[in-house]
């Protein structure tokens, strides 16, 4: 076998050495990081349309075509079975499983995204790289970070049940705080979610307040509002257990950017003598909260356009929590300042 291959191998070796220079110039199939990846994957794009004559395109009318096809024929029987996803999830072993929520037939499907928001593009093109430069901390080559000691406590004692038990949290309340990993391109803080919360204790006596609050929160956030009951009796705040008192909306993905840009570019600049968001806000893990009074909520363009449709004196104020991936308030504040939210007073980290 090897002997039989020998001549061909020798020939190929010779050929290899006497390769003409033209071959070196030929475009090679090798892919570099710099070469356009798509071009290598497929030569033809799915966006390309096969050539059709102009007259054919102009004459094409799908409705007319289907009518012509059905002309003089018996119509097909209406389909017996039309799929409807189950209303309730009855567990993983049930034969009738609901489709995933990304499927348009699912009851949980929410269409979108409808656009690529301007604020998101600004974040990607400008803000993210500036934050990276601002918060980067250089460590010299060969630097080894000090070993992080165990932050949870061991169970000490001679009880046999201590073996294999999960570690105890540290003494005192509060639990463990988030660690601040060194900044790199993968952990630049970004806005993940906004929660709009409006509490209306008057709704306990007159539910109209809750309906109006729900309509307003939905109108300004473009998200279905969720109502909440009071969990305890609080005499000081006039809360009674089990009564509906508040509405929230979790604004995520594309809506976040639309809501924030509306808030920052339209609503907040119109507040008279507004100092900004208090510098003391924040839960020390990168989430910033501030409140809006009823007259500010009324300045949202969606409310303003038909202000008269809302019952007078029922427009509620609201709290807005901006959740970020920052691990401390300082970085979260940096991010929100670059988005355009001003802070005032003493800054607490």
């Amino acid at each position: 076998m090897a002997l039989r291959e020998l001549p061909s191998r020798a020939a190929s070796a010779v050929l290899h050495n006497s390769r003409p220079a033209v071959l070196a110039l030929r475009p090679s199939g090798r892919r570099n990081a710099s070469s356009e990846a798509l071009r290598d994957v497929e030569s033809s794009s799915s966006f390309e349309v096969p050539f059709v004559s102009d007259s054919l395109v102009k004459a094409f009318d799908p409705i007319e075509r289907s009518k012509r096809r059905r002309l003089g024929k018996k119509p097909l029987p209406p389909s017996r079975y039309q799929f409807r996803p189950p209303k309730y999830y009855r567990g993983p072993l049930h034969p009738h499983q609901p489709p995933p929520s990304s499927d348009p037939v699912s009851r949980e499907f929410i269409p979108g995204p409808f656009a690529s928001p301007r604020l998101e593009q600004t974040y990607q093109s400008t803000i993210a790289s500036d934050l990276m430069t601002l918060t980067y901390h250089h460590l010299p080559p060969g630097y080894r970070a000090p070993v992080q000691l165990q932050r949870l406590r061991e169970w000490t004692g001679d009880s046999p049940y201590f073996k294999g038990r999960p570690l105890r949290p540290p003494r005192g309340g509060g639990g463990l705080r988030l660690l601040d990993p060194p900044r790199n391109f993968k952990n630049i803080p970004e806005i993940t979610k906004v929660v709009v919360h409006s509490m209306v204790p008057e709704a306990q006596d007159n539910s109209a307040h809750l309906h109006v609050a729900g309509m307003i929160v939905q109108a300004i956030t473009n998200v279905r509002a969720v109502t909440h009951k009071a969990r305890h009796n609080v005499v000081g705040w006039g809360l009674r257990e089990g009564k509906y008192v508040s509405v929230t909306a979790d604004v995520e993905r594309e809506d976040t950017f639309h809501f924030l840009s509306k808030l920052i570019d339209v609503v907040l600049p119109r507040i008279k003598e507004w100092k900004g968001v208090a510098g003391t806000t924040g839960d020390s893990s990168g989430n910033i909260t501030f409140g809006l009074t009823p007259d500010v909520v009324a300045m949202f363009p969606e409310i303003e356009v038909n202000y008269d449709s809302y019952p007078p004196k029922m427009i509620p104020g609201c709290h807005i929590t901006i959740q970020t991936t920052a691990t401390n308030d300082r970085d979260a504040r940096f991010l929100l300042q670059s988005v355009g939210l001003p802070f005032y007073g003493k800054l607490v980290d």
Binding site: P104, P111, G112, P113, F114, A115, S116
Partner: peptide, 9 residues
């Protein structure tokens, strides 16, 4: 894609 999603909505 955005037009498709808008129409779906």
């Amino acid at each position: 894609y955005h037009l498709y999603q808008k129409r779906l909505n």
